[in-house]
Amino acid sequence: MKKLFLVCAIGLTLSINAQELKQVTYNDGTQQLNGMVTSNAGEKRPGVLILPAWKGIDNEAKQAALELEKQGYIAFIADIYGEGNIPADNRAAAKIATQYKNDYKSYQQRISLALEELKKQGAIADKIAVIGYCFGGTGALETARAGLPVAGVVSIHGGLVKTGNRPVSQIATKVLVEHPAEDKSVSKADYENFITEMNAGKADWQIITYAHCGHTFTNPESPDYNQLMAERAWNHTILFLAELLK
Protein backbone atom coordinates (compact mmCIF):
# COMPACT_ATOMS: atom_id res chain seq x y z
CA MET A 1 0.00 0.00 0.00
CA LYS A 2 2.82 2.37 0.90
CA LYS A 3 4.56 1.54 -2.37
CA LEU A 4 1.37 2.22 -4.31
CA PHE A 5 0.96 5.58 -2.55
CA LEU A 6 4.58 6.45 -3.30
CA VAL A 7 4.19 5.60 -6.99
CA CYS A 8 1.02 7.70 -7.22
CA ALA A 9 2.68 10.60 -5.44
CA ILE A 10 5.68 10.46 -7.75
CA GLY A 11 3.38 10.29 -10.78
CA LEU A 12 1.44 13.33 -9.60
CA THR A 13 4.64 15.26 -8.97
CA LEU A 14 5.98 14.41 -12.41
CA SER A 15 2.68 15.45 -13.97
CA ILE A 16 2.76 18.81 -12.21
CA ASN A 17 6.43 19.39 -12.96
CA ALA A 18 5.93 18.41 -16.61
CA GLN A 19 3.62 21.34 -17.12
CA GLU A 20 5.83 24.28 -16.34
CA LEU A 21 6.53 27.44 -18.27
CA LYS A 22 10.11 28.09 -19.37
CA GLN A 23 11.61 31.52 -19.89
CA VAL A 24 12.82 32.28 -23.39
CA THR A 25 15.14 35.19 -24.07
CA TYR A 26 14.99 36.90 -27.45
CA ASN A 27 15.79 40.39 -28.70
CA ASP A 28 14.58 43.44 -30.55
CA GLY A 29 17.88 45.04 -31.49
CA THR A 30 19.64 45.75 -28.17
CA GLN A 31 16.46 45.34 -26.11
CA GLN A 32 16.26 41.99 -24.34
CA LEU A 33 12.82 40.41 -24.25
CA ASN A 34 11.84 37.64 -21.83
CA GLY A 35 8.95 35.51 -23.02
CA MET A 36 7.62 32.24 -21.64
CA VAL A 37 6.82 29.00 -23.43
CA THR A 38 5.01 25.81 -22.47
CA SER A 39 6.89 22.59 -21.72
CA ASN A 40 5.89 20.97 -25.03
CA ALA A 41 8.16 23.38 -26.91
CA GLY A 42 10.24 21.61 -29.54
CA GLU A 43 7.37 19.44 -30.69
CA LYS A 44 5.63 20.13 -33.98
CA ARG A 45 2.24 21.42 -32.90
CA PRO A 46 -0.18 24.27 -33.62
CA GLY A 47 0.83 27.38 -31.69
CA VAL A 48 -0.89 30.17 -29.81
CA LEU A 49 0.78 33.48 -29.03
CA ILE A 50 -0.51 35.14 -25.85
CA LEU A 51 -0.30 38.92 -25.55
CA PRO A 52 -0.57 39.87 -21.87
CA ALA A 53 -2.36 42.80 -20.27
CA TRP A 54 -0.84 46.20 -19.56
CA LYS A 55 1.41 45.15 -16.66
CA GLY A 56 3.23 42.55 -18.71
CA ILE A 57 3.31 38.78 -18.17
CA ASP A 58 0.85 38.06 -15.36
CA ASN A 59 -0.92 35.12 -13.74
CA GLU A 60 -3.82 35.25 -16.19
CA ALA A 61 -1.48 34.92 -19.17
CA LYS A 62 0.44 32.10 -17.49
CA GLN A 63 -2.71 30.17 -16.63
CA ALA A 64 -3.97 30.59 -20.19
CA ALA A 65 -0.70 29.16 -21.50
CA LEU A 66 -0.96 26.10 -19.26
CA GLU A 67 -4.58 25.52 -20.28
CA LEU A 68 -3.67 25.83 -23.95
CA GLU A 69 -0.93 23.26 -23.49
CA LYS A 70 -3.58 20.85 -22.19
CA GLN A 71 -5.46 21.45 -25.44
CA GLY A 72 -2.41 20.35 -27.41
CA TYR A 73 -1.00 23.74 -28.40
CA ILE A 74 2.44 25.23 -27.90
CA ALA A 75 1.76 28.51 -26.15
CA PHE A 76 4.20 31.41 -26.03
CA ILE A 77 3.67 34.52 -23.89
CA ALA A 78 5.18 37.59 -25.50
CA ASP A 79 7.21 40.20 -23.67
CA ILE A 80 6.19 43.47 -25.30
CA TYR A 81 7.98 45.94 -23.03
CA GLY A 82 11.35 44.24 -22.53
CA GLU A 83 13.67 43.75 -19.58
CA GLY A 84 13.89 46.81 -17.35
CA ASN A 85 10.62 48.27 -18.61
CA ILE A 86 8.01 46.28 -16.68
CA PRO A 87 5.59 48.73 -15.01
CA ALA A 88 5.34 48.64 -11.22
CA ASP A 89 1.82 50.05 -10.90
CA ASN A 90 -1.28 51.02 -12.87
CA ARG A 91 -0.05 54.53 -13.57
CA ALA A 92 3.19 53.27 -15.10
CA ALA A 93 1.30 50.56 -16.98
CA ALA A 94 -1.11 53.10 -18.46
CA LYS A 95 1.80 55.24 -19.62
CA ILE A 96 3.76 52.52 -21.39
CA ALA A 97 0.69 50.81 -22.83
CA THR A 98 -0.49 54.11 -24.29
CA GLN A 99 2.96 54.61 -25.78
CA TYR A 100 2.68 51.33 -27.68
CA LYS A 101 -0.92 51.93 -28.70
CA ASN A 102 0.10 55.24 -30.25
CA ASP A 103 3.32 53.86 -31.72
CA TYR A 104 1.44 50.93 -33.20
CA LYS A 105 4.24 50.00 -35.60
CA SER A 106 6.56 49.30 -32.66
CA TYR A 107 3.79 47.24 -31.07
CA GLN A 108 3.33 45.28 -34.29
CA GLN A 109 7.10 44.76 -34.48
CA ARG A 110 7.24 43.25 -30.99
CA ILE A 111 4.31 40.98 -31.85
CA SER A 112 6.02 39.89 -35.06
CA LEU A 113 9.20 39.02 -33.17
CA ALA A 114 7.21 36.96 -30.68
CA LEU A 115 5.52 35.09 -33.52
CA GLU A 116 8.92 34.23 -34.97
CA GLU A 117 10.04 32.99 -31.56
CA LEU A 118 6.91 30.83 -31.29
CA LYS A 119 7.85 29.20 -34.61
CA LYS A 120 11.37 28.58 -33.30
CA GLN A 121 9.79 26.77 -30.35
CA GLY A 122 8.16 24.29 -32.73
CA ALA A 123 4.84 25.84 -33.72
CA ILE A 124 3.65 24.89 -37.20
CA ALA A 125 3.95 28.07 -39.26
CA ASP A 126 0.51 27.92 -40.89
CA LYS A 127 -1.27 26.87 -37.69
CA ILE A 128 -0.77 29.84 -35.39
CA ALA A 129 -3.29 32.08 -33.64
CA VAL A 130 -3.00 35.05 -31.28
CA ILE A 131 -5.01 35.77 -28.15
CA GLY A 132 -4.65 38.87 -26.01
CA TYR A 133 -6.04 40.34 -22.82
CA CYS A 134 -6.81 44.05 -22.31
CA PHE A 135 -3.77 45.86 -23.80
CA GLY A 136 -2.92 42.50 -25.33
CA GLY A 137 -6.40 42.36 -26.83
CA THR A 138 -5.57 45.59 -28.62
CA GLY A 139 -2.39 43.86 -29.79
CA ALA A 140 -4.38 40.93 -31.15
CA LEU A 141 -6.30 43.36 -33.34
CA GLU A 142 -3.05 45.07 -34.36
CA THR A 143 -1.83 41.65 -35.47
CA ALA A 144 -4.77 41.45 -37.87
CA ARG A 145 -4.37 45.05 -39.03
CA ALA A 146 -0.69 44.48 -39.77
CA GLY A 147 -1.47 41.43 -41.87
CA LEU A 148 0.85 39.24 -39.83
CA PRO A 149 0.72 35.58 -40.91
CA VAL A 150 -1.70 34.07 -38.41
CA ALA A 151 -4.92 32.12 -38.86
CA GLY A 152 -6.92 34.19 -36.42
CA VAL A 153 -6.90 36.48 -33.41
CA VAL A 154 -8.92 36.72 -30.20
CA SER A 155 -9.25 40.08 -28.45
CA ILE A 156 -10.40 39.56 -24.86
CA HIS A 157 -11.70 42.81 -23.34
CA GLY A 158 -9.29 44.67 -25.60
CA GLY A 159 -9.43 48.24 -26.82
CA LEU A 160 -11.11 48.49 -30.21
CA VAL A 161 -9.80 51.88 -31.32
CA LYS A 162 -7.43 52.03 -34.28
CA THR A 163 -5.05 54.85 -33.35
CA GLY A 164 -3.43 57.02 -35.97
CA ASN A 165 -4.70 58.26 -39.30
CA ARG A 166 -4.53 54.92 -41.04
CA PRO A 167 -6.40 53.77 -44.11
CA VAL A 168 -8.48 50.63 -43.75
CA SER A 169 -6.68 47.66 -45.22
CA GLN A 170 -8.03 44.23 -46.07
CA ILE A 171 -7.98 41.90 -43.07
CA ALA A 172 -7.31 38.30 -44.06
CA THR A 173 -7.17 36.75 -40.61
CA LYS A 174 -10.30 35.70 -38.71
CA VAL A 175 -11.22 37.94 -35.77
CA LEU A 176 -13.05 37.14 -32.54
CA VAL A 177 -13.75 39.91 -30.02
CA GLU A 178 -14.90 38.94 -26.53
CA HIS A 179 -16.44 42.10 -25.18
CA PRO A 180 -17.76 42.84 -21.67
CA ALA A 181 -21.09 44.64 -21.89
CA GLU A 182 -20.18 47.16 -19.19
CA ASP A 183 -16.66 47.97 -20.36
CA LYS A 184 -16.37 51.71 -19.72
CA SER A 185 -13.10 51.88 -21.65
CA VAL A 186 -14.90 51.19 -24.93
CA SER A 187 -17.39 53.83 -26.04
CA LYS A 188 -20.38 53.22 -28.29
CA ALA A 189 -18.56 55.12 -31.02
CA ASP A 190 -15.47 52.93 -30.60
CA TYR A 191 -17.63 49.83 -30.92
CA GLU A 192 -19.45 51.04 -34.02
CA ASN A 193 -16.27 52.32 -35.67
CA PHE A 194 -14.66 48.94 -35.14
CA ILE A 195 -17.51 47.19 -36.89
CA THR A 196 -17.24 49.67 -39.75
CA GLU A 197 -13.50 48.97 -39.97
CA MET A 198 -13.99 45.19 -40.01
CA ASN A 199 -16.63 45.39 -42.72
CA ALA A 200 -14.55 47.78 -44.82
CA GLY A 201 -11.62 45.38 -44.49
CA LYS A 202 -13.85 42.48 -45.58
CA ALA A 203 -12.85 40.61 -42.41
CA ASP A 204 -14.33 37.37 -41.11
CA TRP A 205 -15.25 38.82 -37.72
CA GLN A 206 -17.51 38.22 -34.77
CA ILE A 207 -18.18 39.90 -31.44
CA ILE A 208 -19.51 38.05 -28.40
CA THR A 209 -20.80 40.34 -25.66
CA TYR A 210 -20.94 39.13 -22.06
CA ALA A 211 -23.69 40.48 -19.82
CA HIS A 212 -23.10 42.12 -16.44
CA CYS A 213 -19.34 42.30 -16.98
CA GLY A 214 -16.88 45.11 -16.35
CA HIS A 215 -13.60 45.53 -18.19
CA THR A 216 -11.33 42.77 -16.82
CA PHE A 217 -14.07 40.18 -16.34
CA THR A 218 -11.84 37.19 -17.14
CA ASN A 219 -9.16 37.90 -14.53
CA PRO A 220 -9.73 36.18 -11.15
CA GLU A 221 -7.54 38.83 -9.49
CA SER A 222 -9.77 41.68 -10.70
CA PRO A 223 -12.83 43.10 -8.91
CA ASP A 224 -14.56 42.85 -12.32
CA TYR A 225 -14.14 39.06 -12.38
CA ASN A 226 -17.26 37.18 -13.43
CA GLN A 227 -16.59 33.47 -13.13
CA LEU A 228 -19.52 32.27 -15.23
CA MET A 229 -18.87 34.68 -18.08
CA ALA A 230 -15.10 34.08 -17.87
CA GLU A 231 -15.68 30.35 -18.30
CA ARG A 232 -17.98 31.00 -21.26
CA ALA A 233 -15.41 33.29 -22.85
CA TRP A 234 -12.69 30.67 -22.45
CA ASN A 235 -14.91 28.01 -24.00
CA HIS A 236 -15.58 30.35 -26.92
CA THR A 237 -11.83 30.89 -27.29
CA ILE A 238 -11.14 27.14 -27.34
CA LEU A 239 -13.89 26.56 -29.90
CA PHE A 240 -12.52 29.31 -32.14
CA LEU A 241 -8.97 27.99 -31.91
CA ALA A 242 -10.15 24.48 -32.76
CA GLU A 243 -11.77 25.83 -35.93
CA LEU A 244 -8.61 27.74 -36.91
CA LEU A 245 -5.94 25.23 -36.04
CA LYS A 246 -7.51 21.83 -36.68
Rank of each mutant, 00 (worst) to 15 (best):
I77A: 03
P46F: 05
N235S: 06
N235V: 07
V48M: 05
Y133D: 04
A151I: 01
D224L: 10
I16L: 10
S112R: 11
I77M: 06
V153M: 01
E43M: 13
A97L: 11
A125T: 14
E60Q: 13
Q108F: 06
E69V: 04
L244P: 00
L6D: 02
N27S: 08
D190I: 05
A88D: 07
N59F: 01
Y210L: 12
S185T: 15
Q31D: 09
A88P: 02
K62P: 01
A242E: 12
H157A: 07
F194G: 00
I124E: 15
N219H: 12
N34C: 09
K188C: 00
E20Y: 06
F194C: 01
L4V: 12
P52N: 13
S39F: 08
N85P: 06
T163I: 11
K174P: 01
L6G: 00
G152L: 10
T173L: 11
D103L: 10
R145T: 12
K184A: 13
T209P: 10
S185I: 08
D79M: 06
C134H: 03
L12Q: 02
Q23A: 11
N193Y: 06
A125G: 04
F217Y: 10
E60A: 11
K44N: 13
K55Y: 09
N34S: 11
E182Y: 13
I124Y: 10
V7W: 12
L66Q: 07
I124N: 14
L33W: 01
Q19A: 05
G11V: 15
G201I: 03
W234A: 00
E117M: 15
K105V: 15
A93M: 07
L12W: 10
I124M: 15
A93Y: 07
G164K: 02
A140Y: 08
Q71R: 14
D79K: 04
A125K: 09
A129K: 01
L115P: 05
L113N: 05
K70W: 10
I111N: 03
A123I: 14
A65C: 11
A64N: 05
E243T: 12
I96E: 05
I238C: 03
G164C: 10
S187R: 09
L6V: 10
S106E: 15
Y81E: 08
G201E: 03
G47C: 09
W205F: 15
A41P: 00
K246P: 11
A172Y: 04
N219C: 12
A125H: 02
I128V: 14
N102E: 15
L68V: 06
G132R: 07
E117V: 15
L113G: 05
N90I: 10
E116P: 02
H179R: 02
S106M: 11
R45K: 14
T163L: 13
G152P: 07
T98I: 09
A53N: 03
I16C: 07
A233Q: 08
Q71P: 09
V168A: 05
E197V: 12
K62C: 10
I208L: 11
T196P: 03
